[in-house]
Structure formats: structure tokens, C-alpha cells
Simulated scan of single mutants.
Amino acid sequence: MSAETASTRLAEIHSRIARAAQIADRRPDDVTLIAVSKTHDAESIQPLIDAGQRVFGENRVQEAAAKWPALKAATPDIRLHLVGQLQSNKAADAVALFDAIHSVDRLSLVAALAKAMAESGKRPDCFIQVNIGDEPQKGGVAVRELPALLAEARAAGLPIVGLMAVPPVGVDPAPYFALLAKLGREVGLTELSIGMSDDFEVAVTIGATHVRVGTALFGARA
């Protein structure tokens, strides 16, 4: 991706976020754009960094560990978010590498993250992932089990800041985003990680504080 393409795409996404925020009487600055760079190498990511993007998302710990330490060393104000599923045995690696983890969804992971944070002293922000469409193939805690998991996570000392969800494919995402926003209000969490390339504007109008955009910034994956 050329520097010009990166700047153009980034400006377009920010413009669309601003328009969506205006519709909902929100400030665009209250929405964090996470550029999801999974499957893209450092050479493809650098133009977006050069264009001013500072928050990036990855799906896998191992892939992120291969490319981000050098990129973060060169640009220390980069913030890296883990937006994919996390295995408990990778919790320590994730805590070491990421500034936020969006996929806390079970007790075993809560325990592993609490242990890793206690040992390292590093405390990335955590989002609880909710299986908002009750889909067996997706990660996330069931809606009915959210309060119990949140209580356990808070008791373990995890810095839980919000909720994350991925709505079912091929249907209107708005009711699912609205449900997550309602759940957030009920449990006292104000941050919502919702919305991707196809639906981030809808998410912003419903209260997203973090949108996870990959394809619209990097182009279609091979």
C-alpha cells in the first residue's frame, strides 16, 4: 500500500466515523479506530503508521509477536489490541505484548490473565466478549452468564473496561449492537468494541467506543 493510498483510506474512515457520530450527537473523538492488521506484514502496516494511525488490532498472539515489537520500538506511542480469541496458555504472552485484550470470555482465561498480570505488573485494558447472537461456533460468554463472569473478573482484579461482540453475519447488526449497549449499561461498563468494515457506522450511531476496521483500510486479504 502506498503512502498516498494509506492517507486517503484513513481520512475516508475518519470522515465516515465523524458523520455517524454527528447523527448520534456524539463526538468523533470518543470513537477509537482500531486498524486490524491481521495477515498483513510490517511493510504493509508502515504506511498507515506514517499516515498517523496509532491503534492497531491483531487476531493471533504468535503473528503479532513476529511483527509488532520492531514496529512499536520504532513508534513507541502505538497501542496494540488483541481482538481475536485467546487461549489460556498464551495469556502471559498476550499481557506482555498487548495494550488491550478484547476477548475475555471464560473463567479459565480470567485466572490465566490475572496470574500473568500479577507476575508481570503489566495491566492491559480488558473487554469481556459476549456471544451476542448465541452462535455455537463463536467465542464469547453467553448473555445470561455475563454478570457472573464479570463479577469473577472484577474479583480477580482484571481491569475490565467494556464489552465486545461480533454480531451474526448476513443480518442487520443494529439490534445486536443495541443489545450489547443495553448490557453495558446494566453492568456499568461504558466502552463498547463493536463494528467492523461493513457496519462500523451503524455501530458508532449506537454507541461504539472502539471500531475494528481491517479490509476498508488494508484492502481485501489474499
Rank of each mutant, 00 (worst) to 15 (best):
R60V: 03
N59Y: 10
V83H: 09
N89W: 11
A91E: 07
V104F: 08
L80V: 00
F98L: 02
E63C: 04
A70I: 09
P76N: 11
A70W: 09
T75S: 14
V83F: 10
L71W: 10
A70H: 13
E58F: 06
F98Q: 08
L71R: 04
T75H: 14
V95A: 04
L86F: 04
L107N: 14
S88P: 02
V104P: 07
G84M: 08
R79W: 05
I101K: 07
S88F: 02
V95P: 00
Q87A: 08
P76A: 07
G57R: 11
T75R: 14
G57M: 09
D105F: 10
T75G: 01
S88W: 06
D77E: 15
V104C: 15
L107F: 08
K67D: 02
A74T: 08
R54E: 03
R79N: 08
N59C: 08
Q85D: 13
H81E: 02
A96Q: 11
L80F: 09
K67A: 04
N59A: 06
L82S: 02
D77N: 06
F98C: 04
N59Q: 06
E58N: 06
L82D: 03
E58L: 08
R79D: 01
A64H: 10
Q87E: 06
L82F: 02
L82V: 10
L107D: 15
V83A: 07
A92E: 05
S88H: 11
A70R: 14
A66I: 10
H102G: 01
D93Q: 15
A70G: 12
A66R: 15
L86V: 03
A66M: 09
A92G: 02
K72H: 03
A66L: 15
K90Y: 02
K67R: 07
D99H: 09
H102R: 06
L97W: 04
H81L: 03
Q62F: 11
V83D: 03
V61S: 01
R79P: 01
R79V: 08
L86C: 02
Q87W: 13
K90E: 00
Q85C: 09
H81Y: 13
I101P: 07
I78M: 09
K72C: 09
A73H: 11
L82A: 02
A65L: 15
A73I: 06
L82P: 00
S103E: 04
K67M: 04
R60K: 14
P76I: 11
A100T: 12
Q62H: 13
I78E: 00
S103N: 12
V61C: 00
A73C: 09
A91P: 01
L80R: 01
A73F: 08
V83Q: 10
R60T: 00
A96I: 06
I101A: 06
Q62T: 08
Q85H: 15
H81P: 00
